[in-house]
Design a protein around this nucleic acid. Structure first.
Lengths: 193, 193
DNA sequence: CGACGATACGGAACAAGGTTCCGCTTTGCC
DNA sequence: GGCAAAGCGGAACCTTGTTCCGTATCGTCG
């Protein structure tokens, strides 16, 4: 919702507010790395040297903060989809490569996959943002692969995205569990029989 | 651990203690259905008409309570494995059937799949119990299927179990996500190429 | 049957984390 | 420089888990 290039009158925030917002993003990014996306609000505030009220003013829900921190990477992932498809090679390979990017992203963000699948309403908009941004890309790749006859038709992008997200949960807790390998099994299972 | 036929001296609990334990199990089962396995301790205590201290005395961690409530069903699932294998039919079919049982179990217990994959130390023994009981069964089924040449060799039962558990997360939140179908894709992906 | 030690109970009290709210400060503009 | 609006800080409150101890209950023994 809040975005730089909006059509409506952007009331131009105060200088200190913009400074704080930037500081907060950096502090949150650091806290997320150190303690996962569930890092206590007070910790993030302390890192940024601001009060907790300031966090809530800039980012009403945790989801807003998480989206703000990872927006660039999600955008990059979304843009990589069409690029992979255009780069030649089989559509299934492009799909697999793209899913790999997605998995890499999730696996390196402690707690993000968990948050994405949390029923906590706090994370509803997080879920929404990822879906808004990535679902069309996934759909495009799936359609291309299906059109090429490389995967069975009828696979729903929504379901695939959620499944892959789920498989990334707990990816760093036990070396015996490798999310990439398991996702690989899943993708193999989509191929035409 | 605590069992009726133990070898050590069973100090024979007081009558009211046994009564409370039973009441608590029923209250917890009801609370789990109504609010998931994360139902607040106070709610469970209130349902049972006891103080919170009584819960902690009987079930020191939430995992103990969850295990106690679902023990029978987990045992049943564990015992179904060899039975399916003995019942004839392909080993892969037996594996698929068994995984289906497991998925059905998880999907109908709100929050259980999430708890199984939680890094909260409170749930460590829950994780441990499921693994202790189901890993050998899963391993047996996998070996049979691999021996029959129906699935590729080298699939780790640990990884499969966790993957299936993960795919059951959030199974009831959106009708567009069907855990059984997705697990089906995964199992297909295990077949020999 | 009554007393007494052991066992178990209840719930107040404490800890941790999220969220709200309001008096005070800073900013931007006249 | 002064003033209104925007923004800030953090105390206070809520929810939920966990601990602890004074009190009540049980079971046994005299």
């Amino acid at each position: 919702m809040a975005d730089t290039g909006g059509t409506a009158a952007a009331p131009r925030k105060r200088a200190d507010a913009r400074r704080n917002e930037k500081t907060l993003l950096e502090a949150a990014a650091a806290a997320f790395i150190a303690a996962g996306v569930d890092a206590p609000v007070r910790d993030i505030a302390a890192r940024a040297g601001v009060g907790v009220g300031t966090i809530y003013r800039h980012f009403p829900t945790r989801a807003d903060l998480v989206v703000a921190v990872y927006r660039h990477q999600v955008e990059a992932c979304a843009e990589a989809g069409p690029a992979l498809l255009a780069a030649g090679g089989s559509a299934h390979a492009a799909l697999a490569r793209w899913i790999d990017l997605f998995v890499d992203f999730l696996v390196t963000k402690h707690g993000l996959a968990e948050a994405l699948r949390s029923d906590d309403p706090t994370f509803a908009t997080l879920h929404g943002y990822f879906l808004d941004r990535l679902l069309p890309v996934c759909a495009e790749l799936l359609e291309a692969a299906a059109a090429a006859g490389e995967i069975r038709p009828g696979i729903e992008p929504f379901e695939l995205l959620l499944a892959v997200g789920n498989l990334c949960i707990g990816a760093n807790w036990d070396p015996r569990y490798d999310a990439r390998r398991v996702v690989g099994y899943l993708l193999t299972g989509l191929r035409t029989a």
